[in-house]
Amino acid sequence: MFVRTVYATGDPTKIDTALRALNTAGRDLLMERPGYRGASVFVDRELGKLLSASWWSSAADRHNSDEVMSLRRAELLGPFAGTVTVDNYEVAAFHVFQHPRAGGGLRVTGLEFDPADTDLLADVFRTSLLPRLDTLRGIAGASLFVDRERGRARSGLLFVDRESLAASRAVMAAVRHEGVAKAHATVTGLEEFEVVYADVRAD
């Protein structure tokens, strides 16, 4: 599968306006596009950050959908968004432990690496990280998005509640340190969000 992410920052007091638009008109627009596989929206209400992801069967489906979405994006995110960044990724790994819940938590790790090490990073994620998540309290899902050309990736861990997200920080810090060393990657960012909704059809 393939993913398009939209990362927006703006006035925290106006973030609910953008969420209402994304949850109604935004979802309707996406569902009308061929190859649509689901969408997720996450927020940091305190700082005023919004992260959304739409999932697609193919890179072509994703590209074709953006011809429509790019025209409507400013309308959907306004008047909240002051900055908007759009990125495209390949889904290198995706595993669901249980269905995520609204109000749960997401931790996103930004990564950079030599593009030649893309498959190494994906292998480390699948063989070293995923098996260690089974016993992690409240884990709902794990994913790895990669940009093979630019050598950039985002890994995400979903939790059913914010308490489980917080409780995992120390354990996952050690796992992250070990994983990036094996994958020859560098951590470029670490953020946490509240789950607004997460609905992806992996089959």
Rank of each mutant, 00 (worst) to 15 (best):
M1I: 13
T5K: 10
T5W: 07
Y7V: 01
T9S: 14
T9C: 10
L19C: 03
L22S: 02
N23R: 15
A25K: 12
G26M: 00
L29N: 10
L30M: 14
M31H: 10
M31K: 15
M31F: 10
G35C: 00
Y36M: 05
Y36K: 10
G38H: 03
S40Y: 07
S40W: 12
V43E: 11
V43R: 06
D44E: 02
R45L: 01
E46I: 11
E46Q: 10
L50V: 00
S52D: 12
W55K: 10
W56A: 00
S57L: 14
S58H: 02
A60N: 06
A60H: 09
H63D: 11
N64H: 13
E67Q: 12
E67H: 09
L71F: 08
R72Y: 09
E75N: 07
L76F: 00
P79K: 05
F80N: 06
G82I: 07
G82S: 13
T85D: 06
T85A: 13
D87E: 15
D87S: 08
D87K: 14
Y89R: 09
E90V: 12
V91A: 03
F94K: 05
H95W: 03
V96D: 11
R101H: 08
R101M: 10
A102E: 07
A102N: 02
A102R: 13
G103F: 00
G105S: 06
L106T: 14
T109N: 11
D114R: 15
A116C: 08
A116M: 13
T118A: 15
L120A: 11
L120D: 11
L121W: 14
A122R: 13
D123L: 09
D123P: 06
V124Q: 07
F125S: 08
R126Y: 04
T127C: 07
S128T: 13
S128H: 09
L129A: 04
L129V: 01
L130P: 03
L133P: 01
D134S: 02
D134E: 12
T135R: 14
T135I: 10
R137P: 03
A140G: 03
G141H: 02
F145T: 07
F145C: 11
V146D: 01
D147I: 07
R148G: 00
G151F: 00
G151C: 07
S155T: 14
L157W: 09
V160L: 13
D161R: 00
R162I: 13
E163F: 04
E163M: 06
A166D: 06
A167P: 05
A170K: 14
M172F: 07
M172Y: 07
A173L: 06
H177N: 13
E178K: 12
E178Q: 13
E178N: 15
A181M: 12
A183W: 06
H184R: 15
T186L: 14
V187T: 15
L190E: 14
E191A: 08
E192C: 03
F193I: 03
V196H: 03
Y197I: 04
Y197G: 06
A198L: 02
A198M: 00
A198R: 09
A198Y: 03
V200K: 10
R201W: 04
A202D: 05
A202C: 07
A202P: 00
D203P: 08
